[in-house]
Amino acid sequence: MQVFSTFEKNAFLEIAISMLEKKGIKKESIFAVPLDNRAEERKIFDNLHRSDGTSLIDIGVALATAFSVIGASIGFELAWGPIYWGLIGASIGFILGVAIRLFTEKVIKKKSRLLKGKQSEVILIIDCDESQVELVENILWNHFALGVAKVK
Rank of each mutant, 00 (worst) to 15 (best):
A64F: 04
F76S: 05
R42V: 08
D52H: 05
P82C: 00
L35D: 07
V61M: 03
A39K: 15
I100W: 00
A39W: 10
D46F: 03
L96F: 04
A39P: 02
K116M: 03
R42Q: 08
G86T: 01
E121L: 07
E40L: 10
Y84R: 08
S120A: 05
E40K: 09
S112V: 11
R42E: 03
I83D: 10
S51H: 15
I100S: 11
W85G: 01
L63M: 09
E105H: 15
L48E: 06
Y84D: 02
E40Q: 14
A90S: 15
L114N: 04
L56Q: 09
G60E: 04
K118Q: 09
Q119G: 08
R101K: 08
F94N: 01
K110N: 12
A62T: 12
N47A: 05
A64L: 07
I123C: 05
G93C: 02
I123K: 06
V98S: 13
F94I: 07
W85Y: 15
A79L: 09
A72P: 11
I100M: 01
F103A: 14
N37A: 04
I95Y: 08
A66Q: 05
S73M: 05
L35R: 10
T54Y: 04
I57K: 12
L124D: 07
L115D: 11
E41G: 08
A90E: 01
N47D: 15
D58Q: 08
R101A: 09
V61A: 04
G89K: 01
D46C: 11
L78D: 12
D46S: 14
G97F: 13
F45T: 13
I92L: 15
I59L: 05
F76Y: 10
I125G: 08
R101N: 13
L78N: 13
E105I: 13
K118V: 08
P34R: 00
K110R: 10
F67Y: 02
A79V: 14
A72G: 12
K109C: 03
G86L: 02
K106W: 02
K116T: 03
I88P: 09
P34E: 01
G81W: 04
K116W: 01
I100E: 09
V98W: 00
K118R: 14
I92A: 11
I125D: 11
G89H: 01
A62G: 11
A99C: 14
G75A: 00
T65L: 04
G89W: 00
